[in-house]
Design a binder for these strands. Structure first.
Length: 425
RNA sequence: GGAGGAGUGGCAGAGCGGUUGAAUGCACUGGUCUUGAAAACCAGCAUAGGCGAGAGUCUAUCGGGGGUUCGAAUCCCUCCUCCUCCGCCA
């Protein structure tokens, strides 16, 4: 979430940003935050005044007892005692106003970067780099990946249903090896690019889920192990970013580059139809995530670097891709600027999103409390960024569909040594 | 899962009801000294929030939450984490 003081100092900018996102009632939401903050301040001022007086008297009582002046001490005791009711009231008021303020702040989205194009839906996203000119033509007999998976026995949705339910694919044989090879390929690439590799826990506690913003906003998106009150991670972003929670860094620690492969669990409640056919949308999938925590002055430079990095991966895989700048209406609530990567799925004749790279500026770090000591010796919030590099199912879908030939599915050179095959036939 | 012990500043470690936001040591930062460094010496060194132009000042925080008390790091309850022993187990 945004800092109250930032909202106070940049009120017009915050409201304008909310309008870019087609947020209704921006002015009202912002005024509510400021009003609640004023209320918080005045309550604290009153409370602090009483507490200061009480503390002072209590110290005097200590002195009086030492001198044996019991009667005087008793009188002062009564004086403090008389304030207790009011203190309780104010403390309760404080608690309530803080909760209200937090809730109001959660309603305020991040301020979009000036480069964010206006617009309402994914139709309005700006194609910032496009390879659509030489899209592969597969012919009428081209098969979608779910047919190819069946044909070559790479994955089995029916068995996934039997074991768990819809949306839990079972990879087998060469399909499983293809996936494992790709994961290793992505992890090795991240390692070469200077990211530290992590294998984090796949269940997280409430604090972690709250810090990266899954709670309370996206509660329904996560699987919840209620007995232990733990959540299955919807992305490695959650455990990996939480490494830096409540940490005060030194400027020389930047940039912090982290990566990790994890399964991701998403309930995707309400999804159905063609959009979710095959591997297009599933409840459990593999993903390699990259996360950076950087100095605020560097974050947009780093965002470009991350885009270039993901671009490099797709080029090595020889997949036709395009990069989109998300418009105001499609931009994630917590992001200031997001680039989506889509690969072309030749048999389905559609673009599939495989990566989303975002700069959250301080929006995430404010909740995480990731700070650093600047050269001015003060603490400041760091900027956080993350992106998929990459999500597996749709990459696999596109690889299978685009590389199908009469002889079989050709494995791109870059990953042959990882997969241990040149062709799936 | 059962029994016992413990959680204090970046680290180590005192304090166990009264001016203790917290001794001391180490680390760190600045200074003196030195050709430079080390050593020695001097000074500084938590986070968040309120008030204030600022100097500053007040409040909260000694694993988390709650309670007792005029007053809690110190007493009580509860939860969490770590250590030791037993049980179970890939």
């Amino acid at each position: 979430m945004l800092q109250v003081n930032f909202i106070r100092d940049n009120k017009e900018q915050v409201i304008a940003g909310m309008q870019t996102r087609n947020y209704k009632g921006a002015q009202l939401a912002v005024d509510k935050v400021l009003m609640l903050d004023d209320q918080r301040k005045s309550t604290q001022t009153e409370l602090d005044t009483i507490l200061a007086a009480n503390n002072k008297i209590s110290k005097e009582i200590g002195g009086l007892y030492k001198q044996g002046k019991r009667d005087e001490a008793e009188g002062l005791k009564a004086q403090v005692e008389s304030q207790k009711g009011r203190v309780k009231e104010l403390e309760e008021e404080m608690r309530q106003v803080k909760v209200k303020l937090r809730d109001a702040l959660l309603e305020i989205p991040n301020v979009p970067h000036p480069n964010v194009p206006p617009g309402n839906t994914d139709e309005d996203n700006e194609v910032f780099q496009d390879w659509s000119k030489d899209l592969p033509e597969m012919g009428a007999d081209a098969q979608p990946h779910w047919e190819l998976g069946k044909k070559y026995n790479l994955f089995d949705f029916e068995l996934g249903v039997k074991i768990t339910g819809a949306g839990f694919p079972l990879f087998r044989g060469r399909g499983a090896r293809l996936q494992r090879g790709l994961i290793n390929f992505f992890l090795d690439a991240a390692h070469k690019a200077g990211y530290e590799e992590f294998m984090p826990p796949l269940l997280v506690n409430e604090d972690s889920a709250r810090a990266t913003g899954q709670l309370p906003d996206k509660e329904g998106q996560m699987y919840h192990a209620t007995k232990d009150n733990l959540y299955l991670i919807p992305t490695a972003e959650v455990p990996v970013t939480n490494i830096c929670r409540d940490v005060i860094l030194n400027e020389k620690d930047f940039p912090i580059k982290m990566t990790g492969h994890t399964p991701c669990f998403r309930r995707e409640a309400g999804s159905y139809g063609k959009e979710v056919k095959g591997l297009n949308r599933v409840h459990q999938f593999e993903k390699v995530e990259i996360v950076q925590v950087v100095h605020p002055e560097k974050s947009y430079e780093v965002l470009q670097e991350m885009v270039k990095y993901v671009e490099g991966l797709l080029q090595q895989l020889k997949l036709p891709y395009r990069i989109l700048t998300l418009c105001g209406g499609d931009l994630g609530f917590t992001s200031a600027l997001t680039y989506d990567f889509e690969v072309y799925s030749a048999a389905q004749k559609r673009w599939l999103e495989v990566s989303s790279i975002s700069n959250f500026e301080t929006y995430q770090s404010n909740r995480l409390k990731v700070r650093f000591k600047g050269s001015d010796k003060k603490t400041h919030l760091a900027h956080t960024l993350n992106g998929s590099a990459l999500a597996l199912p749709r990459i696999i879908a596109a690889l299978l569909e685009n590389n199908q030939t009469a002889e079989g599915i050709k494995i791109p050179k870059a990953i042959q040594s990882y997969v241990g095959m040149e062709i799936i036939s």
